[in-house]
Amino acid sequence: MNSNPLKSENVCEENVYQEVFKSLSKSLRDFLYYKCGSLETANDLVQEAFIKLWQKCQDVPLSKAKSFLFTTGNNLFLNTVKSQQVRLRFKAENKNSAENKEHPEFEMEMKEFQNSLEAAINALPEGQKEVFLLNRINKMTYREIAESLGVSQKAIEKRMSKALIKLKDVLNPKD
């Protein structure tokens, strides 16, 4: 008898483990990417973090898997890498494309703004940057981010608000 009924929600179940991977790997990868700026490194750290999760599966209940992965990923990141710039993709919006062709200046202006925005995001303090991007890109709610990083939801909302003010100030230097 080597399973403890109290820990029945653990991720040693192969299908549970795979579900966890499905639901969290992309946001974990992006979280690590926001930190280190290298896709290759981020992908690798995701693997390392999930291997650790598997090794600890007896001790990590399903409900704690997310914060375990984010904490582990963060620790692994601290051990390894120097930060680089995060590259973001601005999806072309179809409804504007016809308009853009007729107004090349508009397109230019848009492109310029996007470049400045990307630079401004990269200039954010790390804590603000990752919260901002996890919410905007990965559509994680403030509560989810708070759980993942092990801080209060209020702290996340403060970081988010500060990030927006900082972005506005950087993009509008005359203010």
């Binding site: 993709r89 601005f90 996007q114 890109i137 927006l164 972005l167």
Partner: peptide, 27 residues
């Protein structure tokens, strides 16, 4: 308007794609 512009510009942001199946196989 300045905040609104930031909001709109980041509505459709993406990062590089992630091949989840391939990564899981590797794992």
């Amino acid at each position: 308007a300045k905040f609104q512009k930031i909001k709109e510009a980041t509505e459709n942001l993406e990062t590089a794609s992630y091949d989840e199946e391939e990564e899981f196989r590797k794992l």
